[in-house]
């Protein structure tokens, strides 16, 4: 597994600067949680790492070398909306096969799809299903399997549980933790839900208005926040506690 490093990355859309010289490292085999309110630039940071957002200055490195932003990316991303992240006209198997490297034989392809589906705790027979036949949580698992199919060094998970029911969210979070343990994946886990980040991340970075305001081991940042904004976030995580 590899380390993903953001080095003074800025992203500007027109006159609006979304990210200001953000530096952040996702160490090999670790999960870094990225928290902050919506619109603060979390998704932009992830999208920049796969070439979906143009960086104005700075660099994004994979093990010290610029991360490729064309062709099959060594950094893969899983998106928030399970209803938009799978092509409704392609079967689960076809979606996953598209991300497989090389030109595997039919048989290799099928066994690899089955392996990946098992890995995300889905029945391999699901490969023939269309996304319309799956629930939100099952779709999100397929999206994860597709990302894994590309043999990525790093996975970016952008709010992958926020569109899911709490009953399903737990299953997806358990899966993420299993995969870190079994595959040693490096992961940037983006969420606005602090309890969720706390559960899966080793490190936590807090993004506020396009700048990283605090960064450190999860237990420290969430247990003993140093920046005012982090405290503010933590207080919001228990809505109205002082009210009642």
């Amino acid at each position: 597994m590899s380390a993903l490093t953001f080095h003074e990355v800025s992203v500007r859309y027109g006159a609006h600067t979304v990210l200001h010289e953000v530096s952040l490292e996702v160490p090999a085999g670790r999960t870094v949680g990225l928290v902050g309110e919506s619109g603060c630039g979390k998704s932009t940071l992830a999208r920049a790492a796969v070439g979906l957002a143009p960086i104005t200055s700075g660099s994004i490195l994979l093990d010290g070398r610029p991360v490729p932003t064309r062709g099959r990316r060594p950094v893969q991303m899983v998106f928030q909306d399970p209803y938009s992240s799978l092509d409704p006209r392609m079967t689960v198997g076809e979606s996953i096969a598209e991300a497989l490297p090389g030109r595997p034989s039919r048989q290799d392809r099928q066994s690899e799809i089955a392996r990946l589906l098992t890995l995300v705790h889905l029945d391999p027979a699901r490969a023939a299903d269309l996304p319309g036949q799956l629930s939100g949580g099952q779709r999100q698992r397929v999206a994860l399997a597709r990302a894994l199919a590309a043999r990525p060094q790093v996975i970016l998970a952008d709010e992958i549980t926020s569109a899911l029911d709490v009953s399903v969210q737990g299953a997806v979070l358990n899966l993420i933790r299993d995969m870190r343990r079994d595959l040693g994946l490096s992961m940037l886990f983006i969420s606005h839900n602090l309890a969720v980040v706390r559960y899966v991340a080793d490190h936590v970075a807090v993004l506020h208005a396009g700048r990283i305001v605090e960064h450190g081991p999860a237990a420290r940042v969430l247990g003993d926040p140093r920046h005012d904004y982090t405290r503010h976030l933590l207080a919001s995580a228990h809505p109205l506690k002082e009210h009642t």
Binding site: L52, F79, L86, D87, A150
Partner: peptide, 26 residues
């Protein structure tokens, strides 16, 4: 704009194939 197009791009799907596999059928 759909995420599956972004996902396909990240997976290395080229423009022509994108048009054929993901855009035209939809």
């Amino acid at each position: 704009e759909r995420d599956y197009v972004a996902a396909a791009r990240i997976a290395g799907v080229g423009r022509a194939r994108m048009l054929r596999r993901h855009v035209l059928p939809n």
